[in-house]
Write a protein that binds this DNA or RNA. Structure first.
Length: 118
RNA sequence: GAAGCGGACUAGAUGGUCGCUGGUUGCCGCCCAGCUUGGGCGGCGACGGGAGGAAAGUCCGGGCACCACAGGAUGCGAUGGUGGGUAACGCCCACCGGCCGCAAGGUUAGGGAAAGUGCCACAGAGAAUAGACCGCCAGACGGGCACACUAGCCCGUCGGGUAAGGGUGAAACGGUGCGGUAAGAGCGCACCAGCAGGCUGGGUGACCAGCCUGGCUAGGUAAACCCCAUCGGGUGCAAGGCCAAGCAGAAAGCAAGCCUCGCUUAGCGGGGCUUCGGGCCGAUCCGGUCUGCCGCUUUCGGGUAGGCCGCUCGAGACGCCGGGCAACCGUCGUCCUAGAGGAAUGGCCAUCGUCGCCGACCGGCCUCGGGCGAUCGGCGAAACAGAACCCGGCUUAUAGGUCCGCUUCAAGC
RNA sequence: GGAUGGGUGGCCGAGUGGACUAAGGCGGCAGUCUUGAAAACUGCUGACGUGGCAACGCGUCCGGGGGUUCGAAUCCCUCCCCAUCCG
């Protein structure tokens, strides 16, 4: 059953180390001032999200804030992005987790990534 | 009112909306077992849960799990006033001693240096059974001055005496006074400080108070070795257990003698002793124990890194009463309060409350250049920080606010 | 989540109670040699604050803070940072 547009169940997340490895091995990534996005095709009708937030970004509270902000942005824009892509998103080191900026950045980065994957 | 000390509490609130997570439950779909009851997975819906005072650092102490385990000695590590609390502690409480503060109070690794060993740089004469550089003192010798008498004064050299003075140092082997002496010195005496021993009184005790005697002096350092007392098995939930899936194994090591017993009798098997090898008893030794060939041990290599359990009812929270100075303990009553796993507990909006700044306004108050207060509007701020098996502490980070007790100073009565 | 090891000039690093704190090497600067450079050789060289016209002087600093000691890079406590390991 495909997920409805604004929900975020477990089927739209990457849960295994192997899935992350697959995305990294595809070696297709785009980035801007605040985010780095790795991408890879999957055989599903929808996109899936994985998060990789390094300890260098900040302490646990800052890392949680990043993850929530990116998840929220992904949840809101997943209907308009191209389906069938697995994404692994990492924040850049100097950036601050601002919800509006992340949503705008994520939208353009996923479009660029879809072009790159062909 | 000003300054300060100690302690406790809180960690914005309410509502709406969109999400996440696991629990209970209803419906639907698939799978397994099937006579039925059932079990598992997924989706949708409803109901009620969903971070902290430090969840942090991992600095201590436990519970729990696995491994190991007769015991003794040595070693290693930790702790260190006394008494209590505790499951335990390096924690807490009370008290004692030292230091700081006018005080409330704060702080204290606070056993032993008259068991032993080591060290105390530089400077200084001498640095721990001390030491004569300058100085002080008398003596011998030589020289000079003065020489009538007492025999004097000065300089130099020599070997002595002397710890009162100078100087060095973080530290120089008690302080003051009197006597004493060639000069001096606890050399003698008095007082003071400090020490040792004994006695008396108080206290469970650390210790306190007093008296007597002694010798006159004992340096510091044990967060140097050490001694004494007490405590301590190791590893950690990635412990550990079950299920599923999956690959590929290789190398090394694994005694000898004697006695005895059994059998299908010249071979095989069992038991005991001695020596030897190996493992374990955390490091060493004594001592003990297991084992020595067709299965074990060790090392290297390969494969998985999926699911379930452990996983939250516990030294549990709250309240009353009782015991105790207190930490804390006990009876009774009520309650169940997060369990994730690429890792949930959040985003947005509105209203209210707190604080700060700016502006407007008031028939409020005053020491009237201004300050305080009330009302309204706008803008801004709200910390430190995220459970990862669970508890008890410690340490560190922390915006704003509330309350309680106490001290000193000032004013009024 | 748990367990270990380590922080010394710009860099690598010795020093594990003794004075002006700091061995040695790399690097940097200046000089000699050269037409010029490289190599070689010789000498110098830490940062910050402060005083001074200058030469130079004084103070602080071994990740930060506190303690023990006459004296700490060294011993003890505590905090911060970095690196490694696990099933």
């Amino acid at each position: 059953m495909p997920p409805s547009s604004s929900k975020f169940p477990k089927t739209t997340r990457l849960l295994r180390g192997g899935q992350f490895q697959k995305v990294y091995r595809r070696r297709r990534s785009v980035s801007d001032r605040i985010l780095i996005v790795h991408g890879c095709e999957n055989d599903l009708e929808h996109a899936r999200l994985g998060l990789s937030v390094s300890k260098r970004v900040g302490n646990a509270v800052v890392r949680n804030r990043w993850k929530r902000a990116i998840r929220e942005a992904f949840r809101l824009i997943q209907a308009e992005t191209s389906p069938g892509i697995d994404l692994v998103i990492s924040p850049r080191r100097g950036a601050t987790p601002d919800a509006l900026m992340i949503r705008r950045s994520l939208k353009s980065l996923t479009q660029r990534l879809a072009c790159k994957l062909g």
